[in-house]
Design a protein around this nucleic acid. Sequence first.
DNA 1: TCATGTGAAGCAGTTCACAGCG
DNA 2: CGCTGTGAACTGCTTCACATGA
Lengths: 217, 217
Amino acid sequence: MAPAGGVSPLTVNRLSIYLRVLRQLAEQGEERISSQQLASRYDLSAAQIRKDLAQFGEFGIRGVGYDVRQLAARLEELLGLDRRYPLVIVGMGNLGRALAHYLEFNSGSFEVVAGVDNDPRGVGRAVGRVTVRPSAELAELVRSTGAVVGVLTVPPEAAQENLDALAAAGVRAVLNFAPGRLRAPRGVRLKNVDLRIHLEELAFYLGAGEAEKPQRR
Amino acid sequence: MAPAGGVSPLTVNRLSIYLRVLRQLAEQGEERISSQQLASRYDLSAAQIRKDLAQFGEFGIRGVGYDVRQLAARLEELLGLDRRYPLVIVGMGNLGRALAHYLEFNSGSFEVVAGVDNDPRGVGRAVGRVTVRPSAELAELVRSTGAVVGVLTVPPEAAQENLDALAAAGVRAVLNFAPGRLRAPRGVRLKNVDLRIHLEELAFYLGAGEAEKPQRR
DNA sequence: TCATGTGAAGCAGTTCACAGCG
DNA sequence: CGCTGTGAACTGCTTCACATGA
C-alpha cells in the first residue's frame, strides 16, 4: 500500500509538515487529534490531510481521529526518517560552513560526515564535527563514510562538474544551492534551492500593481 | 496587459529562469531565439514559454522568434528587477552571515543594507558591507534604510515575533529560513525555505522502493 | 453519533495542435 | 514558410460531500 514512486512532491512536503506538527502535539501531551482539529490549528485542509494519508493506508479510527504518536511514527517510517543518511557537503565556503553548523543541531536523520573544498586555503579547517578535505578526495570520502546525500554549495560555474563527481562517487540525492540549470545524472535525485529565484518572486509580487495597472485608474 | 495579481508563482519562477538563460545567450552574442530553441537547449517546454509570456503581452515576431536583449529587458521590467530593493537580515548567526556574504556579490537588484541580531556578542561585527546592530534598532533601521525586503534567519522559536516586528516596521516581503508554521501578517508576502523539508523530500524518494514494494518481487 | 476514507466535482497548470501573421 | 499566440484537450491536484464503520 505504499506507491512510493507515484507520490507527488507536494504530498511528500506536506507529510513533513504533518510530522512536525504531530511531534509538537505529542510533546504537549495530546494523544488524539482529528483531521479537522489539525487543519484549524495549523491552517491546513482537513480533506487534504486525509487524502494525503489515504495514499499510504488507513491510519485513523472512524468517529475518533488519529493517535498522535502512532501517526507520527508511521509518517517517520513513510518518509524514511527511521534510517540515518550520511551527508557530504561540497563547497565549504560561507554557505557550506553555515549549513554544516546548522545541520549539526537540526539535522534529524541527516548527519554531516564530510565536507570538501577546492580552495587549498580552506582545507584542514574544522567545521562542526568535520574537517574540510580537498575535493580530490571526494570519491574516497563518499566510499568510506557511506554518504548517500550531497549538498552542493559551490560557485555556479563549478556546479555541474561537482554534481557529476557526486553522482560518480555514488551519492544518490543532491540538494543544490548553486544557481543555473543543472543536468541531473542518471540515478540521482536533484533538488534545487535558488535564493535568487525566491527573491525575484518576492520582488514580482511587491511591484505588482504599481508599475502598470490600467484598471486601478 | 499585466495581471500581476493573478499570476501563479510557478509562472513567476519560470520567468526568472528565462531571464537568466536569456542573459547568458546575450553574453554569447545571440540576437534571436525561438521558443523551440530555448526549450531544447535548456530543457524547458516551448509551449509553456509561449504561454507564460502570453500572460503579459506579445513579445515575439511570428515566423522568427524573440529578440534576446529585448525580451530580457522586458522580463526584468515584468519581474520588477529594474528597481533596487534594500534588504535587511534578521538573525546574523552562521546562516545570516553566510547569506549576507552571498548577497554581496550575487544580489542583483537586492542590496543588504542592514543586519540585526539579538545576541549582544555579535553586535558591532562587520559582515560584508554592513555592521550587525541590535534587534531593538530594527524599526529605526528599516525606516532609515528604506528596507522593503526582510530575510529571517533566527531560531524557530523567535521566528514569529521577528516576522511580526519586520511587518510592523514596514517591510513588505520576507524570505524565511526558520522551520515551522508562521502566520504572515497582513500586507506581508512570506516565502519559506525549509532545509529540513527539502532533505526529507530527498529521503522519501531515496527510500522509495526498498522498504515496501510488493510489485518488484 | 462522529470523523474517517473516498468517489465525484471543481480548479489549476500543462500540453497539444493549429489559425494567424510577419 | 515558420514561429508565435491561443483555444481546446488533458493531466494532476484540491475540495466537496457522503457512505462507511468504529
